[in-house]
């Protein structure tokens, strides 16, 4: 059962990445492209989160009872893999930062072109 959860979580993560790439490549609206970039990042985050998942594992926060009983080895055996979660936290902030800059640029481009169509914005760059 748990293995299925992990497998499907990976599949969903892969699909998120693919949908994001599809949005970047084929959608004309600038905001949709930006959403695509975010989806790629979220898909990768989900991959990392699923890597941290351990079937039957516990949350990697040690309880006072467990700590004082000295069963740290048991905790390490039971707890979910904690490193990927820390990496996810980092990547979330990276995503938020990129999003802020991209939205700022699209506001500027919209003010200049009065349009969010990428084909329109990049029209004059045809050789």
């Amino acid at each position: 059962m748990n293995v299925d959860v992990q497998l499907w979580s990976f599949v969903v993560a892969g699909l998120l990445v693919i949908i994001g790439l599809y949005a970047i490549a084929f959608m004309d609206n600038l905001v949709k492209k930006i959403i695509g970039v975010m989806l790629v990042g979220d898909g990768v985050n989900l991959v990392l989160i699923t890597e941290g998942f351990k079937p039957g594992g516990i949350v990697p926060i040690i309880s006072e009872k467990l700590f004082s009983s000295g069963a740290v080895g048991d905790f390490a055996n039971d707890a979910a893999y904690s490193l990927p979660f820390a990496l996810v936290l980092t990547n979330i902030v990276i995503g938020a930062s990129t999003l802020a800059v991209l939205l700022g640029i699209s506001i500027k481009l919209y003010q200049h072109y009065r349009s969010l169509s990428v084909a329109h914005i990049f029209q004059e760059d045809d050789a």
């Binding site: 990697p60 926060i61 040690i62 893999y81």
Partner: peptide, 18 residues
Amino acid sequence: GVSYVYNLQGPSIAPNMI
């Protein structure tokens, strides 16, 4: 992987491994 070592050594610093 390394997560195991972190989970093993981490409790002597603070309860929240992450």
